[in-house]
Design a binder for these strands. Structure first.
Length: 427
RNA sequence: GGAGGAGUGCCAGAGUGGUUGAAUGGAGCGGUCUUGAAAACCGCCGUACUCGUAAGGGUACCGGGGGUUCGAAUCCCUCCUCCUCCGCCA
């Protein structure tokens, strides 16, 4: 959520930013509506405060008169209070209504893209930030996609998932399950080595938490809900982990705060099904290791680059061909100011699969969350939040299986072998 | 799940209807003293909104929400959380 103050002070920059997200014409009027409503809010607030101040004054006066034993005068002073109370009640209701309308409008405005974010409407207009420099692996004609390999080697079973739960809930087994566990362990170890504190958060969160990172109200349809208890299954560890710092004021010297967590991720992916979502390409439950940083605004873009390096390191160790995209304004997530996507090459499918998304949210989340730091002058400022997948398992597994298939079995990258305990998946 | 108790500032902990945003202590920050440090002493030490160029005002907040009252941290209702005991249980 953007700060009203910034919308007021830097209106032109905000409008320019929204245009980069392909907002136009009537849509942009929201900004003027917000400013007008905020004017209203201030005026109403002032009226209410003045009324309350007067009531406080009378109450104090009555207190003093009572103290002096002047009962009659005290009774006298009470006349007129009722009318004032009625009026302030009215103003208060007005103020509540204005505030809630204002909040609704603010929730509808996405984050402003960073100045380095390219223009564009569709994923096709994303910029290749770092192309794969080597050769892409080529496989013999009889090479199989990962869903077929899974059957050959008994690695995971989607039909079985349907039996237990429904479509999109894979059951991993045998060497497949072991591979999952190995990847989780590997990614967590790497993150801890890079200075992130390991966190094991709850997999269900309440409404305030879902609101803090922006899942509510924008992406409600993406989450599984437990209505009876008013809880949400997390779509990513970002949600509980970032919210650890909600409503905190941290000393500047504690920044950056670096946290990592492995969690399963649950996504409804409503309406996202199509021909290209076979196998593990898109599932409702997958495993992901997330890295999160709370950073000083002056350093957050440097930190973003650092997070890219971390993810690059992981992919290198997994020996997977990858490329990095800089997302254009039209393809970026609602809350992000700048996002890089990582894609790995899936050799059997002959396509790139997104395995990580690394973003700087600037103050968009911290404003909602009231996550702030105290600077050297003692002033309280909103911190920046960043996060990235490091990494999302399902598609990594897909690429790993496909790219490394040989006549003898499926080769495990060296870095992973000490975690799997085997160097080759065999029948 | 049942019974009882409790939720106050960064922490500990007073406060049971009237100038209480909240005693006191600790921590922290600044200063005096000291070669330096400690101790001692002095001062500062909440957040948000709002009016104001500023100085400085105003309002709200003592777990959340609602109510009673001229006036609520203090009384009432409700929800949440924590603690103790019992039950159940990986």
């Amino acid at each position: 959520m953007l700060q009203v103050k910034i919308i007021r002070d830097e209106k032109q920059r905000i409008l320019t930013g929204l245009r980069k997200r392909n907002w136009q014409g009537a849509q942009l009027k929201v900004i003027d509506q917000i400013i007008a409503l905020d004017d209203d809010r201030r005026a109403t607030q002032k009226e209410l405060d003045d009324l309350l101040a007067e009531q406080n004054r009378v109450a104090k006066q009555i207190g003093q008169l009572m103290g002096q034993g002047k009962k009659d005068e005290a009774e006298n002073a009470k006349s007129g209070v009722a009318a004032m109370k009625e009026k302030s009640k009215e103003r208060e209701e007005q103020l509540e209504s204005i505030k809630s309308r204002l909040e609704d409008l603010l929730y509808s405005v996405p984050n402003i893209p960073h100045k380095t974010v390219p223009k564009g409407k569709t994923p096709e207009e994303n910029k290749v930030f770092r192309a794969w420099k080597g050769e892409l692996p080529t496989l013999p004609a009889e090479a199989k996609a990962h869903w077929d390999l899974a059957k050959d080697y008994n690695l995971f079973d989607l039909e079985l998932g349907v039996k237990l739960t429904g479509a999109g809930f894979p059951v991993y087994r045998g060497q497949g399950a072991r591979l999952q566990r190995a990847l989780i362990q590997f990614f967590l170890d790497e993150a801890v080595k890079a200075g992130y504190e390991e966190i094991m958060p709850p997999h269900l969160v309440n409404e305030a938490t879902a609101r803090g990172t922006g899942q509510l109200p924008d992406k409600e349809a993406q989450m599984y809900t437990c209505e009876r208890d008013n809880l949400y299954l997390i779509p990513t560890a970002e949600v509980p982990v970032t919210n650890i710092m909600r409503d905190e004021i941290v000393p500047e010297k504690n920044l950056p705060i670096k946290m990592t967590a492995y969690t399963p991720c649950f996504r409804r992916e409503a309406g996202a099904w199509g021909a290209h979502v076979r196998g593990l390409n898109r599932v409702h439950q997958f495993d992901k290791i997330e890295i999160v940083q709370i950073e000083h605004p002056d350093r957050s873009y440097e930190t973003l680059q650092g997070m890219l390096k971390h993810v690059m390191g992981l992919l290198k160790k997994l020996e997977l061909p990858y490329r990095i995209l800089l997302l254009c304004g039209g393809d970026m997530g609602f809350a992000s100011a700048k996002t890089y996507d990582f894609e790995v090459w899936s050799a059997a499918q002959q396509r790139w699969l997104e395995v990580s998304s690394v973003s700087n949210f600037e103050t968009f989340q911290t404003n909602r969350m009231q996550l702030r730091y105290r600077d050297a002058d003692g002033k309280i400022q909103l911190a920046h939040t960043l996060n990235g997948s490091a990494l999302a398992l399902a598609r990594i597994v897909a690429a790993l299986l496909e790219n490394n298939q040989t006549d003898e079995g499926i080769r495990i990258p060296k870095a992973l072998q000490k975690y799997t305990g085997f160097s080759m998946i065999k029948r």
